[in-house]
Design a protein around this nucleic acid. Structure first.
Length: 588
DNA sequence: GCCGTTTTCGGCCCGACTGTTTTCAGTCG
C-alpha cells in the first residue's frame, strides 16, 4: 500500500461523506489528512511497520491514524466500505464535472437513480435532467458539454504544454490598451509539474473592454462565464482559462490569493485571524468591533485596509517576508518564513553545465559537436555527453568498442576547442539483476557515469529496490538518473523503496538526478526535498536529445525550487574543477 | 475529524457568478 493509494482512499471517504451530506468539517479533515499523506516521502507503510506514531503527522489524529494502519495492514478500509454501501462511488466522478457538486450529484441519484457518467449522459440526452428542481435546460446542456470535455481532457496539462498556450495568450492580453498589467497566478506560477487550469489576473482601465477582448481570443472555443470581474473560457486544446479583473489597490492580495496553493492561502489567512486581521483577495483588513467576518451583511471593504497593493505588503502585514511561489504548498514555508529561515533558492543562472544529453552516437538527433555548440550558446562551462549503453538496442546503445570510437571523436574535438569542457559520460543501463551494462574497466575511464533503469519496471518492490541499491554500491557510479522511472501522465513511478535508495545514495556519495525533461521531472519535488533532508546531493540534467531541449533546464530548476533546493545542493552549479573532484572521488 | 501560548470545547477562509429564483443555494477556486 503506497502513500498515493492511502491518500486516494482518504479522499474517497471525504467525497462520499460530502455527497451523503455529512459534516463539512469532517470532510475537510479527511482531505487535509490526504494532503499530508501525499506529500510524505517516507512510506507510511514503513512508519506503521516501525511502530511510529502517525498522529505526529499534521492533520492526522487518532481516527485517521487508525484508518491508515488498517489500510496498510489489511489493504482495506472499513469506513470506506461502509460508505460505499450507502452511496454509489460512481457519484464521485459526477462531481468532477463543472457545475455539479456533491449536493446535485446526490439529487440526481435520489431522483433519477443516476450513478455513473454514462447514465448521466443518457438522462441528459433524454431531456430528463431539466425536470428536477434546481436544474434547468442550461444546466442540462452544460452537463453534456462537461462530459465531452472531461473525456477529451482526462488528465492535467504538463507545465511545458501549458507554457505553449499561456505565453501567446498573455501577449494577446497585453496588446489591449485597456490592460495595465497581466500576471498568471495559480499552479502555473507555482511551477507545478502539471496544471489543471490557468488563472490570469489583470489590472484594467476598462473592465468591460478587457473582458470582451479576452472572450474574443482566437483560440477560445467556449465562453463558460463572463461577469464584471470574472470570466472563464476553454481553449481549443481543452485548457480552461480564468480571467480576473482587479482594482490596483488590492492587486497584491489577489495575486497572493490566486497563486495559492489553497492550503498555503488557508494557512496565511489563519495567521491573519490570529492577528485580528482579515485577509481576502481584496486586501488585509482590520476587523471592526461588532463587524466580525461572520456578520450577516458582509462587506469586503469593511474595516481599515492595511495592505493589498503588493504581495510583499500583504506578507509584511502578517509579519512575514515575501515567500517565493514555488514554496507555497503549506510544507512548512509559513513557519520557516516566520523564523526568517526561508531557503535561498537556486536560480537558472546558477547552472554551469548539463550532465545528461545524447547525440547521434545513440538515439540523439544531432551530432556531438552540434550539442556542444548549443551548450556554448547557453553559456555553459562544461557538459557531459551521455549516450546509452548497448542493452538499449532500440536506441543504438554503445558497446565498449563503439564507446572507444566516441572517445576518439571527443578527444579530437577537445584538442581544437577550448570554449567548453567536455566530460566523457554514459547513461549505463542497470540490468535486471542490478549489474551495469558496461565493463568495469571501461566505466573507470569515464568522467561521469550515470546509471538508470529503462526496462523491467514491473519487478516486485523488494527486488527492484535491491536492483537499484546494487547499482548505487558500484564504485564507478556517479549519478542515479531519473531514479523512479515515472513519466508524467504516462507511467507511474516504479514500485520500490525510494527512501532506502536515497539513504544508500547519500552513504555512497552517489548524486541523484532531477531529470529536467518535462515528461519526467524525476525526482519530483517532494522526493528531491527528501533527498536534501537526508543530506543528498543532486544534479539537474535535461536528458536533451536535440539542442532545443537543453532549454528544459528551466523545468528542472523549477522543480528544484519547489524542493527548497539551494545552489549548494546541486553539483552542476559548481565550477568545473570542484565538479571534477567530486566525480573523481567516489569513496573514502 | 482535527486542533489548542486566552482552548479538551467549539471553532474550522472568503467571495463571485450562475441558474432558477421570488431572496438564494450550489458550485468553484
Amino acid at each position: 500500500m503506497e502513500n498515493v493509494e492511502i491518500a486516494r482512499a482518504l479522499l474517497d471517504v471525504a467525497d462520499l461523506i460530502e455527497i451523503q451530506g455529512g459534516n463539512p468539517f469532517r470532510v475537510r479533515a479527511y482531505r487535509n489528512a490526504a494532503l499530508t499523506v501525499e506529500s510524505q516521502t517516507v512510506a507510511l507503510r514503513k512508519m506503521v511497520e516501525d511502530g511510529k506514531d502517525l498522529t505526529e503527522l499534521p492533520a492526522v489524529g487518532k481516527d485517521i491514524a487508525r484508518h491508515i494502519k488498517e489500510l496498510v495492514e489489511t489493504g482495506k478500509l472499513g469506513v470506506l466500505e461502509e460508505l460505499e454501501r450507502q452511496v454509489p462511488r460512481g457519484l464521485i466522478e459526477l462531481t468532477r464535472l463543472p457545475g455539479l457538486g456533491a449536493k446535485r450529484a446526490k439529487l440526481l441519484w435520489d431522483q433519477l437513480g443516476i450513478q455513473t457518467l454514462e447514465q448521466l449522459e443518457r438522462a441528459a440526452r433524454a431531456d430528463e435532467i431539466k425536470g428536477i428542481k434546481g436544474f434547468g435546460a442550461k444546466t442540462q446542456q452544460r452537463i453534456l458539454e462537461g462530459i465531452a470535455a472531461y473525456r477529451k481532457r482526462g488528465s492535467r496539462f504538463k507545465i511545458v504544454d501549458a507554457d505553449q498556450y499561456v505565453e501567446p495568450l498573455v501577449e494577446y492580453l497585453r496588446r489591449d490598451p485597456a490592460v495595465e498589467s497581466v500576471d498568471v497566478a495559480g499552479s502555473y506560477r507555482r511551477r507545478r509539474e502539471t496544471v489543471g487550469d490557468i488563472d490570469v489576473l489583470v489590472i484594467a482601465k476598462d473592465a468591460g473592454a478587457v473582458m470582451k477582448h479576452f472572450t474574443a481570443y482566437g483560440d477560445v472555443t467556449t465562453v463558460q462565464l463572463a461577469g464584471d470581474t470574472k470570466g472563464t473560457v476553454v481553449l481549443k486544446s481543452g485548457l480552461q482559462v480564468d480571467l480576473r479583473i482587479l482594482p490596483k489597490k488590492s492587486y497584491g492580495a489577489a495575486l497572493q490569493y490566486f497563486t495559492g496553493s489553497k492550503e498555503h492561502a488557508v494557512k496565511v489567512r489563519q495567521r491573519a485571524v490570529e492577528r485580528g486581521l482579515r485577509l481576502s483577495e481584496y486586501g488585509v483588513f482590520e476587523v471592526e468591533k461588532g463587524k466580525e467576518p461572520d456578520d450577516e451583511e458582509r462587506d469586503p471593504w469593511a474595516g481599515r485596509m492595511v495592505a493589498g497593493k503588493t504581495e510583499e505588503e500583504v506578507y509584511a502585514a502578517l509579519d512575514l517576508p515575501w515567500i517565493p511561489p514555488e514554496l507555497r504548498e503549506n510544507r512548512g514555508e509559513v513557519e520557516a518564513a516566520a523564523r526568517d529561515a526561508l531557503p535561498d533558492l537556486i536560480v537558472l543562472e546558477d547552472v554551469r553545465g548539463d550532465l545528461q544529453m545524447h547525440s547521434t552516437w545513440s538515439d540523439g538527433k544531432y551530432s556531438l559537436e552540434e550539442m556542444m555548440d548549443a551548450c556554448v550558446e547557453r553559456g555553459y562551462e562544461y557538459f557531459a555527453i551521455t549516450d546509452h549503453s548497448k542493452a538499449l538496442a532500440m536506441t543504438g546503445g554503445l558497446d565498449a568498442k563503439k564507446l572507444r570510437e566516441q572517445w576518439k571523436e571527443i578527444d579530437e574535438i577537445a584538442s581544437r576547442r577550448s570554449d567548453i569542457r567536455i566530460l566523457k559520460g554514459m547513461e549505463v543501463d542497470i540490468l535486471a539483476d542490478g549489474t551495469l551494462d558496461l565493463e568495469d574497466e571501461m566505466l573507470a575511464q569515464l568522467d561521469v557515469v550515470l546509471a538508470s533503469i529503462h526496462s523491467r519496471f514491473d519487478l516486485p518492490a523488494a527486488k527492484q529496490t535491491e536492483r537499484v541499491l546494487r547499482a548505487i554500491r558500484h564504485p564507478e557510479v556517479n549519478i542515479l538518473a531519473h531514479p523512479t522511472g515515472r513519466q508524467i501522465n504516462r507511467r507511474d513511478a516504479m514500485d520500490f523503496d525510494l527512501d532506502e535508495v536515497l539513504r544508500c545514495a547519500v552513504e555512497h556519495e552517489v548524486v541523484v538526478e532531477i531529470n529536467a525533461h518535462p515528461d519526467r521531472l524525476d525526482l519530483k519535488d517532494t522526493h528531491a526535498m527528501r533527498a536534501k533532508e537526508l543530506g543528498g546531493r543532486m544534479a539537474i540534467s535535461t536528458d536533451a536529445h536535440r539542442p532545443a531541449e537543453l532549454a528544459f533546464m528551466r523545468y528542472g530548476v523549477d522543480q528544484a525550487r519547489r524542493a527548497w533546493l539551494e545552489k549548494g545542493d546541486v553539483i552542476n552549479t559548481l565550477p568545473y574543477d570542484r565538479l571534477a573532484e567530486i566525480l573523481a572521488k567516489r569513496r573514502p
